[in-house]
Design a protein around this nucleic acid. Sequence first.
DNA 1: CCGCTCATGTAACTGGTTACATGATTTA
DNA 2: TAAATCATGTAACCAGTTACATGAGCGG
Lengths: 191, 191
Amino acid sequence: MKRLSDLEMAILGIVWKRAPCTTYAVAREFATSPSSHWRGSAGAVYPAIDRLCRLRLVKQRKGVSLGRPCSLLALTAKGLAQLQKWLTPPLDGAAATITHDPVRTRTFFLAALAPEQQRAFLEDAESQLVAQLPVLEEEVARYRRSGDWFSEQAQKGALHTMIARLAWLREFRAALDQRLNESVSKKERRK
Amino acid sequence: MKRLSDLEMAILGIVWKRAPCTTYAVAREFATSPSSHWRGSAGAVYPAIDRLCRLRLVKQRKGVSLGRPCSLLALTAKGLAQLQKWLTPPLDGAAATITHDPVRTRTFFLAALAPEQQRAFLEDAESQLVAQLPVLEEEVARYRRSGDWFSEQAQKGALHTMIARLAWLREFRAALDQRLNESVSKKERRK
DNA sequence: CCGCTCATGTAACTGGTTACATGATTTA
DNA sequence: TAAATCATGTAACCAGTTACATGAGCGG
């Protein structure tokens, strides 16, 4: 069987957790998550669920949600096995590499800016990330309240990462300031 | 003008740093980077450079590399302006959200495994990430030696993030162990 | 009854991947 | 002389996005 994408696997996981649930609810889970790089667009989720159904990893049955008829999803035994396989070592290599960070990507090229602009970039990135902290904290609290222990731990990971990025940005800014001071005093000495 | 993708912007950045260089060299930069989620495949980079040329952000001239004729790339003034704009606050929202982490994604669904397998997953992830540390450290050292200060700082960010993920995984595992002990002793008490 | 959310899709596009093809030059 | 690396592409494919379309039920 062809390897499933991480989106398909995540859908499998969500269906497993929230079954019975609608495709719409799965899509919304992606759309409302603060982390996910998937937008959970209908154009991705509906076809993916179709594929999972055809592979007999997910089954649909008729049901009602909020009084309206709809189709309710649940994993099959085969689907659960697939989900477990995804979580069983060894992790495929792609999973364990360094993560992608658009802020970091940009910093590689900061030398293209004037020093004041370099500092402005770091400050802006910092304040944008700081603004995310309460969102993530609330998400952790939400999972804690819901009693979903693993999601709570996972979300704590997101928070940890965010804090680490912030610490790095601050260190970066401090190093930049020091660097600028040094180059200024060098010029002073030359006078 | 249509918004450029992050890959196109990163290409712009690389060309700016390494000009004059060949398209092949740009592609290899992506391919050899330990971080990048872009594979830097020819099928992506060559067409992207074509687009950047047509937009007059990059210009090509004939040259030689290692004795062979090739086309050498460099940014135009317009290209540099575009690069600087990419680095100028405010960062577009997408850049400042929580990053995607395939290990973290999986941990949301760890409850689908038996406790021993949960622990095995965390241990495997941990050891795979640990194996990346020396690679990243070497990369930082490489940039330090090359005198590319900003890339060095950026790569330190990758290292920081990796260390944070590791700390989180260890915390996770400790919490899991504690949790298991508690549930065991609860059973003991019931006896 | 108007707008909102629930619910289910589809069509066109896009930005990447894989895999292939070609040929020159260098190194073992 | 064979294999590796430099260099430049192309064609087929694929997964996910945007934008649209539709309709039912619910709250003001």
